[in-house]
């Protein structure tokens, strides 16, 4: 009797520890209160990765020659021409912004997703030694990061809609599409849902994929050490695909939404 009780107790303690471990890993390093709370880790890592992206690409751009390109220039040119191809095949307007925007989204999101492949305990452990007790290293597992991008894209969608169609054209699209003027409230509702679905789906898709991936890595880290490499290895290899794909999807949908915004329905 007493033995089984102890077992149950141990199990409960272990469960408590497991839950604590997972929750600990999913807690941001915060500062501030209420809405004005900021996730320092998200801000820090996304900015760091953004700076890495910019330094790398600016360096390549500075040294860019029309002669024989070096390794770094080759790499950046592959990225640039890849993005440029996607943009020019989808977006038919003329814009100085779309292509650099797409490049930034692709590389930045990819780098942020790439943090997912850093062993889950490594950076929190180092941070713990430095006296920082909470650290979430993958910025794209933070809704704030994904929504920040998707809301920015949403603002651009609105901007381009108004810019291309004019205020009147945009209003007409809101009020009289797709059912004509007698169904005006429904038209507005449809438009609202249609437009709001874009940033929400963009942000949640990226967040969901990366959050699930991170969670799975945390769960794998709970396995006995000698078996971790099997599942961890498989999941990591699979995840290389996922993080690239998610970065690509975010970029591609941004281009598609913006090209849709730039197209006039009436003409």
């Amino acid at each position: 009797m007493e033995g089984s009780n102890r077992d149950l107790l141990e199990l409960a303690v272990e469960k408590q520890n497991t839950t604590e471990y997972i929750v600990h890993h999913l807690t941001n390093l915060t500062a501030g209160e209420g809405f004005w709370t900021v996730h320092l880790d998200t801000l820090f890592f996304s900015a760091l990765l953004g700076v890495i992206f910019l330094v790398l690409f600016t360096w390549a751009a500075k040294k860019a020659t029309s002669g024989v390109p070096g390794g770094l220039q080759n790499f950046t040119e592959i990225m640039v021409s890849f993005v440029d191809e996607q943009v020019s095949s989808t977006y038919h307007g003329k814009s100085e912004l779309i292509a650099p925007l797409a490049l930034t989204i692709f590389v930045w999101v990819f780098l942020m997703n790439l943090m997912d492949l850093v062993p889950v305990d490594l950076l929190p452990l180092i941070a713990g030694m430095l006296g920082i007790h909470y650290l979430k290293v993958v910025p794209t597992t933070d809704l704030n990061a994904t929504f920040a991008m998707s809301i920015s894209v949403f603002i651009l969608i609105l901007f381009y809609s108004v810019k291309v169609k004019g205020v009147g054209g945009f209003a007409k699209e809101v009020f009289f599409h797709p059912f004509g003027k007698w169904m005006l409230p429904f038209n507005m509702l449809f438009k609202l849902i249609e437009e709001l679905a874009k940033p929400i789906s963009l942000a949640l898709r990226l967040f969901g994929n990366l959050y699930a991936g991170e969670l799975l890595f945390i769960l794998i880290a709970l396995l006995p050490w000698w078996i971790q490499w099997t599942l961890g290895g498989i999941w990591a290899i699979f995840h290389i695909l996922v993080i690239t794909l998610q970065a690509f999807i975010f970029m591609m949908l941004t281009i598609v939404y913006l090209s849709m915004a730039s197209e006039d329905h009436d003409h």
Binding site: G32, G34, F35, W36, T37, V38, H39, T42, L43, S46, A47, G50, T104, W108, P139, D142, L143, N144, A145, F147, A148, M149, I151, S152
Partner: peptide
């Protein structure tokens, strides 16, 4: 969602 969103938007 909190103020991090604004920071992230600025960074972006």
């Amino acid at each position: 969602i909190n103020a991090t969103l604004i920071g992230q938007m600025i960074t972006f």
